[in-house]
Every structure is written in structure tokens, then in C-alpha cells.
Design a binder for these strands. Sequence first.
DNA 1: CAATCGTGGTT
DNA 2: TAACCAAGATT
Length: 349
Amino acid sequence: MAFQTEIVKWYLNHKRDLPWRGTTDAYVIWLSEIILQQTRVEQGLPYFNRFLENYPTVTAFAAATETQILKLWQGLGYYSRGRNMLYTAKQIQEVYDGKFPTKYDDLIRLKGIGDYTAAAISSFSSNEMKAVLDGNVFRVLSRYFGIETPINSPAGKKQFIELAQNLIAGQEPSVYNQAIMEFGALHCKPKSPACESCPVQSDCFARKNDLVNMLPVKEKKLKKRTRYFNYLVCFNGDEILVNKRNPGDIWQELYDFPLIETDDNYLEAQEQFLTILKNNFGDTCTITPLEQKKHLLTHQTIYVQFFALDNYIINFNQNAEIKWVSLSELDELPQPKVITNFISSYSVN
DNA sequence: CAATCGTGGTT
DNA sequence: TAACCAAGATT
């Protein structure tokens, strides 16, 4: 039996019951696909439900504010996804009169929708013959066909998309695309895949040549940088000073606290840090170390030190970036995880 | 086009 | 524990 037939057959017997399956509503599919980019199903699922409940249609989504969207997105990461969704929803409301496109060529032009997502939405919503190529598909195809081209190289992507597009011919696009992804996610997993019970093991190149743990090949070019964030927790009565983060760095448009970034840990760079502090907040300011956290991102390791800052001179003007808000107002603002965690632990104590 | 964008789970 | 990975996209 052909590879595709076996995969589809496996899928029909093993597929998870997920809320975005069984609909052809391109808006709902778009919602799920953006949320699931680089995100586990279990992590994205509650976000999908909340978004669909708050914004049942693209028209409702388009009427939201960026703060509302980012607040709902809070904790999910890769926040540009949320910002791009709002931009795209507004565009669909205006250009497409609120009717979500279902064709690849229309979808691929929208912000936040790349090759994978355009193929997914078009095939799931209108059965367009476009093969999806995500991490699961890369893994399944590289193992079954024994392809050693690095999947994160331009040549690799070209080679795999050509193969994937050939394989989908003659299949029902909506079912086959979901089948191969689900097979990769549940069966042909990155570590210890279930080869013994695999429906295509007899023809799998990696299985036959003992290369299962070698494929897919991925060039590793991850450089991590280390940063030291010194957050200043400033209270004035019931209000706390917050900072809206700027473009060009992590957590764009999210809110944290006034920040002094240093080249080293505060404990190893006290003089430098205190000089900066006195220069910015006056000689009378006093500072008390609070908690310290190590926060891991894909490309950064951030050592976060919180300080209580008192007796400072309020010498910065409130502006779009830095302002006083009450704690209840802060609760409505989107925050990076490290800030949310600090606030929740702080308000308990 | 190589680097960058979060958070959480797994090994 | 450090590295890898997760329904990738953008610049």
C-alpha cells in the first residue's frame, strides 16, 4: 500500500479530537494555526478557546485593540503573532468585507501567514492542493525517504516542499495534510519514535538503515546571548511605574518596569549600577534587592534582578513608554511572563 | 538569508 | 542540565 494511504489510514484510527478539526471556517482555522505556530497543542488549546469565545468572527477580532489582543496572548510567547493577527483581521474586514480568504495565493499575502499557514488554511478550508511543511512533515519525510539535506537550509526546504507537493497529488488535501502532521506528532516523534508499530516501517529508509536517530539533519547555528536586567519596582501610593517596551527587542509592546540593563550581574557590577541609578534617580534614592530569576528564551539567557526603589526623585516625564498605573490597571496590561510571575508572587507577600 | 522572536515540555 | 523541539514568520 502506498505511503500516503497508510498514513491516512493510521490517521483515521488515531487522530485526536481537536476543536479546530471538523470546521471549514477559515477564520477559525486561521486562529488555530497562528496560535499553534511553534507551540504545542496542549499549550495552545486554552488560548484557542479563549480567543474564539472572545472573538467569534474576524469582524469581532478586527474591532479589538492591540492591548486587548496582547493581553489575551499573554504567556504564549512570540507576541508578533498577536500583533500581526490584529493587522490582518482589520485588513480582512476592510478588503474582504469580513470574509476570510480560503485560497493560498490570497492567504500568503497576509501578515503573519507564511508558506506553512497558507497551505494549512487553504487545504483545510477549501481542499486546495497545497502540501503543508512543518516540523512534523520534515521529520517524517526525511526519515521515510532518507533525505539528509538539512531541513533548515534553503536547499532543504526547496527539496522537501517539492517532495511534499508530489506526495499530496491524488490525495484529499485536507485529510492527508492533517494525517502526516498528526502522524509525526504522535507516532514518528523526534525522540524514541514507535517504529515497532509503524505502519510504514518496511519501506522506511531510516528504519532499514538504522538512521532513525540521525534524521532529520538540522544545522545548528544557535547563538545565545546573556543579558542582565535590573528591574526597578517603584511604588507611589497605590500606583506603580510601568514601562511599555519598544520595537527592536524582545516583548515589543508589552509592559514591564523601568529597566537598567547592565553588562554583568549587579552583584558583580555594583559600582557601575549604582552610578547609573544615582544619575537617573538622584543621590537620595535607596535600593533594596528583591528576587532574582533566570529567564530562558530561545536566543537569550536573561538574569533578572528586581529591586525596590525608594526615596527617588521623580525626574522623568510620563510619556507613552513610562507611566504610573494602579495595580488593577496593570492587571489589564499585557506583560511578559517574568513580570506576571513577579507580580503574582509579590502581591501574595 | 541568517538572525531573531517566548514559553514550556522532554531528554 | 543544557540542548532540543513545538501545526513558523519576519526582516
